[in-house]
C-alpha cells in the first residue's frame, strides 16, 4: 500500500507540473483532472474512502467539467496559443520557482521531525456523517449558504443583458 501512495504522489506532482507548462487550456485542464484522480487514490490509501469518492465525483467530475465547459465556450483558438507561447518564456519561471522552492524547503524542514506512522486506520463514511450532523452542523449550514451565494452571484454575473454604457 505504501508503494501505491508513492506512485500516486509522483503522478500527481508530474501531472501538475505538466499542467502548468501547457499552452492549450484544454490540455492543461485534462492534466489537472489526472492530478486530481491521483490525489483521490492517495486519499483512499490513507483510509479516507469517502473523501476519495467525493474528490472524484465533485472535484474532478463537476468542478473541472465546469472549467472545461467555460474554456470551450470562450473558444480561444490558435491566437490564444500563440499568445501563450509568446508570454511563457523561461525567464518568467525564475522568480516563482525560487519562491516555490523556498516554500517547499520550509515545509520539508518543518515536517522533518515527524514520526513515521504506518498505514492508518480507515475512517468510514458513517463516522464522517455522525460528525457532520453533530459538532459540525453549523459548518454545514454555512457551507450551504455559501453555495447559495455562489449560485446567485454566478447567475447575476453571467447574465449579460446589455445595458446602456455598461462595462
Amino acid at each position: 500500500m505504501q508503494v501505491v501512495f508513492y506512485i500516486s504522489g509522483a503522478i500527481a506532482i508530474l501531472a501538475t507540473i505538466l499542467m502548468l507548462t501547457r499552452l492549450n487550456a484544454v490540455h492543461a485542464l485534462l492534466y489537472l483532472v489526472v492530478s486530481l484522480l491521483a490525489i483521490a487514490v492517495v486519499f483512499y490509501v490513507l483510509g479516507a474512502a469517502l473523501a476519495a469518492a467525493l474528490e472524484v465525483i465533485i472535484y474532478a467530475g463537476a468542478i473541472m467539467v465546469l472549467f472545461i465547459f467555460v474554456v470551450m465556450l470562450l473558444n480561444l483558438g490558435e491566437t490564444a496559443a500563440n499568445e501563450e507561447r509568446r508570454l511563457l518564456n523561461a525567464s518568467m519561471w525564475v522568480g516563482p520557482s525560487i519562491l516555490s522552492a523556498v516554500l517547499i524547503a520550509e515545509f520539508v524542514y518543518i515536517l522533518s521531525e515527524e514520526s513515521h506512522a504506518n498505514i492508518p486506520a480507515p475512517v468510514g463514511p458513517k463516522q464522517v456523517a455522525a460528525a457532520l450532523y453533530a459538532p459540525y452542523l453549523i459548518g454545514v449550514e454555512l457551507a450551504s449558504m455559501l453555495l447559495l451565494a455562489g449560485i446567485v452571484g454566478a447567475y447575476h454575473l453571467g447574465f449579460r443583458k446589455v445595458r446602456k454604457g455598461d462595462s
Binding site: G95, P96, L99, V102, L103, E106, Y109, I110
Partner: peptide, 16 residues
Amino acid sequence: AAGIAAGSALFIAIAI
C-alpha cells in the same frame, strides 16, 4: 499574488 506568496514565505521562515 507574488507579494502575498513572498510575504507568507518570509513569515513562515520567521516562525521557524
